[in-house]
Design a protein around this nucleic acid. Structure first.
Length: 421
RNA sequence: GCCCCCAUCGACUAGCGGUCCAGGUCGCGGCCCUUUCAAGGCCGUAGCACGGGUUCGAAUCCCGUUGGGGGCACCA
């Protein structure tokens, strides 16, 4: 039988990174097995629904490249089917009315158990199972009823979800059994914590896919990083792309212990992917990011500046900080210019009529000027850098000057010389 | 309180009884390269939570302790 899995987020906000990781595992499993990956919106609780959430969740999934099969479905659309089944359970004495709600009768003794693909056998004493409400007094089904019923109706073969659902599983198992349906396989994957060991949340930094996107991370980074949180193909692989991921993924190798989300390692990995991009692709991503984040910068200049910064940044969002001097005015800190006046004047003289105004020629001219003043490159170039870029940290000085152009360079040199004394 | 789950360097992990005085990656420290910052190269730092078993032999199996997490809603 073909494999069919699903991700079932509730539309209460942005797609949480933990949900995204669970979606990834579902997707990888489906693609590896040649099966289907479905998207189901669990909106049984209308009161908590957020209007934009359904679109945002889909955007995030698409951005990560996690394509789902068929149209997405809404849990609420099966309300009537749930009612019907509830009535049958009522008629069969497997459920009963309680203050207007309908409760499912859980077994009183024995144990409910299943063989979890990642945890192994899990057993629950039935005496601890409460009779859960399956239909609220207003007629709407509850999650613990609707979710397993939908799994049945959708022909879900493997339920892959966060391990916070383990306590729900015996309840759902008994409901599925009561309606005489086949029980899917379960795989409970561990949760993702922040570096303090607590559930990953806002206060750790970004915790939604959309936020990582805005922060300048690449989707291929997120895919790689997330896949390796709780899963590993072997002991060495750290960089792995989507195709190889699909090829090598297996639920059996999913870890049973939770992992912590290390932003530093994420940054490192994003830098790796950023540097791997061709200059054209890199510029393209930069332009895309700038556009999405409110920077209306000249595309051609961005494209020309891109290569200068490719080696230096770990996130696309760092680009404005490094290359901003090309797109706006600069305010050097006079303290950083201390003692630089002679070199600034020398640079001015060396560049005023230099031809051609290109990086290699600029370098030759500036080095010669430094030599004449008896300055080491380190001492000579720093004041120029500060004067021209407004910062002690910048892309390559000579390339930066070429891009900036003679006119702007000279005026910044002169302005700084005035303040340097 | 009750139920369930988890436990290898600071972090992500490999290890499924001997090849492990525990390997890879991030981070961290040092050195090299260098016009700054990165990147890169080299070297280094650091771990099997504890206590009992089982076994010729345990990071690997069993039990307990401790620690962490999750769940106990007419939320999902």
């Amino acid at each position: 039988m073909a494999v069919r899995v699903r991700i079932a987020p509730s539309p209460t906000g942005l797609l949480h990174i933990g949900t995204a990781r669970t979606a990834l595992f579902n997707w990888l499993f489906a693609r590896h097995e040649g099966g289907e990956f479905r998207l189901r919106i669990e909106n049984t609780d209308t009161s908590r629904e957020v209007a934009e959430a359904v679109d945002q969740i889909q955007d995030s999934l698409r951005w990560l490249g996690l394509d789902w099969d068929g149209p997405h479905t809404f849990q609420l659309d099966r309300m009537d089917d749930c009612r019907r089944v509830a009535d049958e359970l009522l008629a069969a004495g497997k459920a009963y009315e309680d203050e207007g709600a309908i409760r499912f009768r859980m077994p009183e003794e024995g144990v409910t158990a299943w063989d979890d693909i990642v945890r192994g056998r899990i057993e629950y004493p039935n005496e601890k199972l409460e009779d859960v409400v399956i239909v609220r007094s207003d007629g709407r089904p509850t999650y613990n009823f609707a979710s397993p019923m939908e799994d049945v109706w959708d022909g879900i073969t493997h339920v892959i979800r966060g391990d916070d659902h383990i306590p729900n599983t015996p309840k759902q198992l008994n409901i599925i059994r009561a309606v005489g349906a086949e029980i899917p396989a379960y795989a409970h994957v561990p949760m993702i914590f922040g570096m303090d060991g607590k559930k990953l949340s806002k206060r750790h930094g970004a915790d939604a896919v959309e936020e990582f996107r805005d922060a300048g991370y690449l989707p291929e980074t997120m895919l790689n990083f997330l896949a390796l949180l709780g899963w590993a193909p072997d002991g060495e692989t750290t960089l792995i792309g989507r195709d190889e991921l699909i090829q090598r993924f297996s639920l059996e190798r999913v870890s049973s212990s939770p992992s912590q989300f290390d932003y530093q390692k994420l940054d490192w990995m994003n830098g790796v992917y950023l540097r791997e991009l061709s200059p054209e692709e890199y510029a393209h991503r930069l332009l895309l990011w700038l556009g999405e984040n409110g920077y209306d910068w000249d595309a051609e200049l961005v494209t020309r500046a891109a290569p200068l910064v490719q080696e230096k940044i770990a996130k696309l969002s760092e680009f404005p900080g490094f290359a901003g001097f090309l797109f706006g005015n600069v305010e050097p800190d006079s303290a950083d210019l201390d003692g630089g006046a002679p070199m600034l004047a020398a640079a001015d003289a060396a560049l005023a009529s230099l031809e051609p105004f290109e990086a290699t020629a600029i370098e030759t001219a500036l080095r010669a000027a430094a030599d004449r003043l008896g300055l080491k490159p380190r001492q000579a170039f720093q004041p120029i850098r500060v004067a021209v870029t407004g910062s002690k940290v910048s892309p390559g000085l000579f390339e930066s000057i070429e891009l900036l152009g003679r006119e702007t360079t000279l005026s910044r040199l002169r302005a700084a010389a005035g303040g340097a004394a």
